[in-house]
Design a protein around this nucleic acid. Structure first.
Length: 595
DNA sequence: CGTGTTTGACCAGCGC
DNA sequence: GCGCTGGTCAAACACG
């Protein structure tokens, strides 16, 4: 209760009032505490003075005793007031929790309706499906402090997805793990099923590749293919949409280190791409349905495209949780946004306000990243949504679209009737710049909306200093207000935060090396970005491990707060990397958080 | 010996 | 029906 109250930035007077006055309390953490302590100190002082007086004169004993009694009485009265205040706070918190529950139920209802709109396929069932039916995992989107998040995760284990956004209030400095709501539970079937063995995987995959590189040779002829999805439980009445989460990032190693344990079970040479596509299966649990495909971009070998499918049905380490959160959140966004595909077909920019989570879809804006719309449209089979978190900033890419966007959060929801592609263009925000440049991921927070994006990008300066020969990412041209607004809203989406943060985590975790889909990935006890950020920010006194993430959103909506500076992440690709087969060692992990 | 990788074979869906 | 393709399986192999 107290923790929850603290999470909402409320003082906690009860603790102090419960203690007897004058017990030598040296705790002066919070202003409220200090306030109470001062009061108590005054009382104690008065009492002490009264005692002195009583010692000096017996005649004054009676009056002093009366004074003490009065003081004691007043102290009791004040304690009672504090108790009342505490009760009010509790009531307020209870009301908030009730509101939250109501909103959550509303959200679940909306999600359920959304999924019904897409009675997609998925007649397949496999050996692992039954298991999943019994054990639908929870995916925790934790952008805040982990301990509570983990506890909550274990508490309400099934069919739930927790999105915990750390509070950004003053109480963040409190040591105890606090979690601030947005603890969204999704009915697994509907929203959260990221997973998915996208039948259409080849097409969407190829399509993304073509989008990225402007390539046209990639095979996109194949529609839905083999459905061997193991993961998602599919009820015949309400088959879930299949979603895939594709993360693009510059990575020189075999795979991105996302914290999970992966076992490679296959490799194929996909048509049109000389680079083989590797298939990995999560080994965190024997029945874990999560799989991922790893393939390098044909045009830019430095770009690693990792496609995740499925939800983990086992506990994940914090670092792995991040990526799981990414996939879940991204898929959630995608699936949520997909419901608006119909509307999106008639408008260039569409807003889907999902329980406060703004989701924008865009299907026709030329500015948006859809160089090859036709392939989506030509899709005849009810394909599956693919959301792409593009953290690559490829100045040298042959694709003009590539060069004009720092980071693209692209989701394609191919639909035979209402195909659309939504793109979250990180680079379009004038306040935030998240970009991969030469393997360096930079986040630039600029709270002054009138300021251009890159002017204050210390990271870019840093890049230039480190590698003057390196060309800076393409300057983001001014974008229409609609896009900017969409970007703002998207970046304000907790799901987006989660996806973004998790992607960052995965990339940074890749570290110099990592990658490895081997057992060593998690054996090293790698540290997630969140943890690193939490430690860093806490040490700096921000007191909130999620301040970084919060900044992402708050900076887009507020211009009053002073700029907090830039954060520069140096991922693996910019560092010497090992070419070992397992590529598990990550000595080069380097995170440079500069303020 | 256990675990993970490699790699050819196999399966299934789709287009012609 | 056939071929192509993506995806998976599983035996052989490698590694610690």
């Amino acid at each position: 209760m107290e923790a929850a109250a603290a999470a909402f930035g409320r003082p906690r007077p009860v603790v102090k009032t419960e203690k007897p006055a004058g017990d030598g309390d040296d705790n002066q953490d919070s202003p409220s505490k200090q306030h109470l302590l001062v009061k108590r100190g005054n009382y104690a002082k008065q009492e002490h003075e009264a005692e002195d007086k009583s010692n000096s004169s017996d005649q004054k004993d009676l009056s002093c005793t009366n004074l003490q009694e009065k003081q004691l009485e007043s102290a009791r009265v004040e304690m009672g007031e504090v108790r009342e205040e505490n009760q009010r706070l509790k009531k307020s918190l209870n009301q908030i929790m009730k509101d939250y529950e109501a909103l959550k139920m509303q959200f679940l209802g909306i999600v359920g309706q959304e999924s019904k709109k897409f009675p997609n396929q998925d007649d397949m069932s496999n050996k692992e499906q039954q298991h999943d039916d019994d054990q639908i995992e929870l995916v925790s989107l934790t952008l805040g402090r982990f301990p509570v998040a983990e506890k909550k995760k274990t508490a309400d284990e099934k069919n739930s997805v927790n999105i915990i956004i750390g509070g950004n209030d003053e109480e963040a400095a409190v040591k105890e793990a606090l979690s601030l709501g947005l603890n969204c539970k999704f009915k697994h079937e509907e929203s959260m099923t990221v997973a998915v063995k996208d039948v259409d995987s080849p097409k969407s995959f190829d399509h993304e590749m073509r989008e990225e590189a402007g390539e046209t040779n990639w095979s996109s002829t194949k529609g839905a293919k083999t459905i061997r999805s193991v993961e998602d439980d599919v009820t015949p009445q309400n088959p879930p949409k299949r979603a895939r989460v594709c993360v693009k990032a510059r990575c020189e190693t075999a795979t991105m280190n996302d914290g999970c344990q992966w076992r490679k079970y296959g490799q194929k040479i996909a048509k049109g791409n000389p680079c083989p596509r590797a298939y990995y299966r999560c080994t965190g649990s024997p029945t874990c349905p999560v799989r991922k495909q790893v393939q390098r971009c044909a045009d830019d070998m430095s770009i690693l495209i990792t496609t995740y499918e499925g939800n983990h049905n086992h506990p994940l380490p914090a670092s792995a949780n991040a990526m799981a959160s990414t996939t879940s959140a991204a898929a959630s966004m995608l699936l949520s946004g997909s419901s608006t595909s119909t509307a999106a077909s008639s408008s260039s920019t569409n807003t889907n306000n999902l329980q406060g989570l703004n989701f924008y879809t865009n299907n026709s804006k030329p500015n948006f990243y859809l160089p090859n719309n036709s392939s989506i449209i030509s899709s005849t089979s009810p394909t599956h949504p693919t959301i792409t978190l593009d953290l690559t900033s490829n100045p040298s890419s042959s694709s003009p679209n590539c060069s004009t966007h720092f980071g693209k959060f692209t989701s394609s929801f191919p639909n035979s009737r209402y195909p659309f592609t939504s793109q979250l263009d990180f680079g379009s925000s004038r306040n935030n710049v998240l970009s991969w440049n030469n393997g360096l991921l930079s986040y630039n927070r600029n709270n002054h909306q009138t300021t251009t994006t890159t002017t204050n990008n210390i990271y870019q300066n840093y890049i230039q200093q480190r590698n003057p020969a390196t060309s800076l990412p393409h300057q983001q041209p001014p974008l229409p207000d609609t896009i900017a607004a969409a970007t703002k809203a998207i970046t304000a989406d907790p799901s987006f935060q989660s996806a973004l943060a998790a992607a960052l985590t995965s990339i940074i975790g890749t570290g110099g090396a990592s990658a490895g889909p081997t057992k060593s990935t998690s054996a090293r006890g790698e540290q997630s970005l969140f943890q690193l950020m939490a430690a860093t920010t806490t040490n700096k006194g921000n007191g909130c491990g999620t301040s970084f993430l919060n900044n992402i959103t708050t900076s887009t909506t507020t211009s009053s707060s002073p700029p907090t500076g830039n954060m520069v992440f140096v991922p693996a690709s910019s560092l010497p990397f090992s070419s070992s087969k397992s590529a598990s060692a990550s000595p080069g992990d380097h995170i440079d958080l500069t303020n």
